[in-house]
Nucleic acid binder design. Structure first.
Lengths: 149, 149
DNA sequence: TTGCCCACCTGAAGCGCTTGAGGTCAAGCG
DNA sequence: CGCTTGACCTCAAGCGCTTCAGGTGGGCAA
C-alpha cells in the first residue's frame, strides 16, 4: 500500500484513489486545476507519489466531494485551513450553506419521486387495461407536475 | 404568446422555454443532439417556430428533465410513445427505474446532510472555544464518514 | 534475454448543459 | 429615414469530470 522512500511514506495514485474515494482521473484533474498543488514524482518512472500531508488532505477532500460540495467551496475550505487567522466562523458558514443546499435538494427529490411514481402507476394501469385507474391518476399527475418547477 | 400562421399555432423559442421550463440553450441543444427532431423555421427570420405537436411533447420532456431523468431515458420515452406496439410495460419499467434512482439519491442525501451538519457543529464549537463539544463531535464525524462511501 | 503485463503517464474527446461573443431581422421611435 | 431595441441566430469555450487512445517504465516468467 505504501512504500518507504527515505523516511517518508509515499502513496501511489491507485492507493490514493482507494483511500480518498476519488478516481485516479479526478486526482489528476484536481492537480491540473490547482486544487491540489503539484504532487512529487518518482524520479525514474515519473509516477505520482503522495506524501503524508497530501494523503490526509486529499482524504478530507474526498469526503467533501462525496457530499456534492463544489470545487470552489473545497478551494475555500483549504484556504481557511491553511490560513493563520481564526477561520472557524467562515468554516461554520461554509458547512451550513452546504447543509441548506442538501436540504433543498432533498425536498426537490421528494417532489420528483412523487411525480415519477405516479407516472409509473399510470402506465401500470394502462398495462392492465384499467381505464378507471388511469383517469384517477391523470389529475394527480397534473397536480404533482406543479411542484416540479 | 402564440401567433397564428395559417391555421396552426406556432410558438417562439422564448415561449417554448417558459412553457417547458427548459432554457432556450437547452432547447437548441436537444435539437442538435436529435432528441427533438428539426424544428420548422420562420421563412424570413430563420427563427424557430414550435408547432402544436412539438409543444406538447417538449412540455412533457421538460417535466421528465426536471426529475433528473437521463437523456437516454427521455429518448426511450419518446420512442415508446411513438411506437405502434403496446409499450405500457416498458414505460412502467422506465418510470420505476427512475423512482428507484431518486430513492437511492434521497438516501445518500441524508447521509451527506448528517456529515455536513456535524462538520458545521464542529466549527461552531471551535468558534466558541468549546473544546469539550469539539471532542464529542469528532468521533461522530468519523462514524458519519463511513456511510459517505 | 526476450517478452509480457501492469501501473502509470499525457492529451484529446465526450457528456449535458451554460455562458458569452458576434451577427441578423423586424418593429417602433424621433 | 436612420437608429435603437429585442428576440433570435450560430459557433466556441467552459465546467467537472469520465473515458479512451497511444505510449513508457519496471518486474517477472520462460
Amino acid at each position: 500500500m505504501t512504500t518507504t522512500d527515505g523516511d517518508r511514506a509515499s502513496v501511489s495514485i491507485q492507493d490514493m484513489s482507494k483511500i480518498s474515494g476519488l478516481s485516479e482521473a479526478t486526482l489528476r484533474y484536481y492537480e491540473k486545476i490547482g486544487l491540489i498543488g503539484p504532487v512529487p514524482r518518482d524520479e525514474s518512472s515519473g509516477h505520482r507519489r503522495y506524501g503524508g500531508h497530501a494523503v490526509v488532505m486529499i482524504e478530507a477532500l474526498g469526503c467533501l466531494r462525496a457530499t456534492g460540495m463544489s470545487v470552489q467551496d473545497m478551494r475555500d475550505y483549504l484556504r481557511f485551513l491553511d490560513g493563520r487567522e481564526d477561520n472557524a466562523a467562515l468554516m461554520r458558514e461554509l458547512f451550513e450553506r452546504n447543509v441548506s443546499r442538501i436540504q433543498e435538494e432533498i425536498e426537490r427529490m421528494h417532489v420528483r419521486r412523487r411525480y415519477l411514481a405516479l407516472k409509473a402507476e399510470l402506465w401500470a394501469a394502462r398495462e392492465r387495461g384499467d381505464a378507471d385507474g388511469e383517469s384517477r391518476i391523470v389529475p394527480e399527475i397534473a397536480a404533482a407536475r406543479e411542484g416540479l418547477r
